[in-house]
């Protein structure tokens, strides 16, 4: 479930990136690399787990599925927070800088 959520997040981010390319004002590329990286890592994890459990891997207990769903959503939330922090620090549109140094009349 975590792998699936991560893959969907990676696909959605890639589509958003492609729509805005070649401009990268929102730095969506960072999210793409992050989610694709984690998806590949979880894929390896899944392969090893499948090798151990066999077909049982595809029929998890409902409680495990729910836990994995929460984990997947939390992972996406964490990824978005990391991206947001990088976006605000790099501030490609200069919005933060403009807001901070705004002169009072």
């Amino acid at each position: 479930m975590t792998l699936l959520i991560s893959v969907f997040a990676a696909i959605i981010c890639t589509v958003i990136w492609y729509k805005g390319a070649p401009k990268s004002e929102m730095k969506v590329g960072i999210l793409c690399w992050m989610f694709w990286g984690s998806s590949l890592m979880w894929l390896v994890d899944a392969i090893f787990e499948y090798a151990e459990l066999g077909a049982e891997y595809f029929t998890p207990a409902p409680a495990d599925m729910l836990n994995d769903l929460f984990l997947g959503l939390s992972v996406v939330a964490l990824g978005l927070i990391i991206w947001l922090v990088i976006l605000l620090i790099k501030d490609p549109k200069g919005v933060v800088k403009a807001a901070l140094f705004k002169k009072k009349n």
């Binding site: 975590t2 991560s6 590329g29 960072i30 690399w33 992050m34 989610f35 694709w36 990286g37 984690s38 998806s39 590949l40 890592m41 979880w42 984990l71 939390s74 992972v75 964490l78 990824g79 990391i82």
Partner: peptide
């Protein structure tokens, strides 16, 4: 940098899973 982002990003999210 593409490789760095994949490795650091993936490691960060996986570390979160291990904390979980």
């Amino acid at each position: 940098k593409w490789l760095n982002r994949m490795l650091w990003g993936g490691s960060a999210l996986l570390m979160f899973e291990h904390i979980w």
